[in-house]
């Protein structure tokens, strides 16, 4: 249980860090669940532990991220830009989370992809359970983070030599 506490803490600080440094957005933890996610991006990792991190954004938050990161006006924001920013966000949070958790271990990270809640939920049926679910909010909108871990499988969790 103690590990889960650490994971939660590292995931939270990683998220704050990425949003503050790269998007100039100051999030707060929220206990409201079940918000609508207009855009979901995820990244999977394998190594000493395997699983997936997914970010669900409200449309308004995703647009705010683009405006802040790229310095463009609201009307200039395109779908491609929001998807690119949202993928980069999950990429950075994933990387930051894994290296903060244990920098001595090598995790292989996939390229981030855009997905949907429905597609992400299917993963649950493939031996990946939601280990953590965090909700954040700010005046720009809200964010949900899910960490799924693959149940112990010696064949795949051995990682790189």
């Amino acid at each position: 249980m103690e590990t889960m506490q650490t994971i939660r803490k590292v995931l939270t600080t990683s998220t704050f860090d990425v949003f503050e440094k790269m998007f100039f957005i100051f999030l707060e933890l929220s206990d409201k669940g079940g918000q609508q996610c207009d855009l979901v991006t995820s990244i999977s990792f394998s190594g000493p532990a395997s699983g997936e991190i997914s970010l669900g954004f409200s449309e308004s938050l995703a647009r705010a991220m683009v405006e802040n990161m790229l310095g463009v006006k609201r009307e200039e924001v395109t779908r491609a830009m929001t998807e690119d920013c949202a993928k980069e966000a999950v990429n950075m949070i994933g990387g930051q989370f894994l290296r903060t958790f244990d920098a001595s271990k090598v995790f292989n990270m996939s390229t981030p992809v855009c997905s949907t809640d429905a597609a992400a939920d299917q993963q649950a049926g493939q031996g990946q359970a939601i280990a953590q679910c965090l909700n954040f909010e700010c005046e720009k909108g809200c964010l949900r983070i899910r960490l799924r871990l693959r149940s112990e499988d010696p064949g795949t969790s051995a990682g790189r030599p």
């Binding site: 990387g95 930051q96 290296r99 920098a103 001595s104 090598v106 995790f107 990270m109």
Partner: peptide, 9 residues
């Protein structure tokens, strides 16, 4: 410039 930051990488 990378998100990957393990010592080995």
């Amino acid at each position: 410039i990378s998100t990957e930051g393990s010592e080995e990488r």
